[in-house]
Amino acid sequence: MKARVIVTLKNGVLDPQGKAIEGALGGLGFGDVDSVRQGKVFDVELAGADMSTAKEKLEQMCEKLLANTVIENYAIEID
């Protein structure tokens, strides 16, 4: 089973890297970019086919390692 975990910064957490990318896009002439926030994507392949077990395990992985929930949110997509 293939899953994708998307980790993004929480609202209110400053993202200096996103700001720098935003500035660079502006410099390339993309003047209509209002804001850029940088995040991370993890593609995880899991053994087993049970959807709810997989989701539960992925949530544990996010809570324990993939995301720092002090500053980040996560979303899980399962194929």
Binding site: P16, Q17, A20, N68, V70, I71
Partner: peptide, 17 residues
């Protein structure tokens, strides 16, 4: 120590990058 939960908060990329 912050990642382990022994201290509160988090250490982010320096503001000046």
């Amino acid at each position: 120590l912050t990642e382990a939960g022994l201290l509160p908060g988090a250490l982010m990329r320096n503001a000046g990058l």
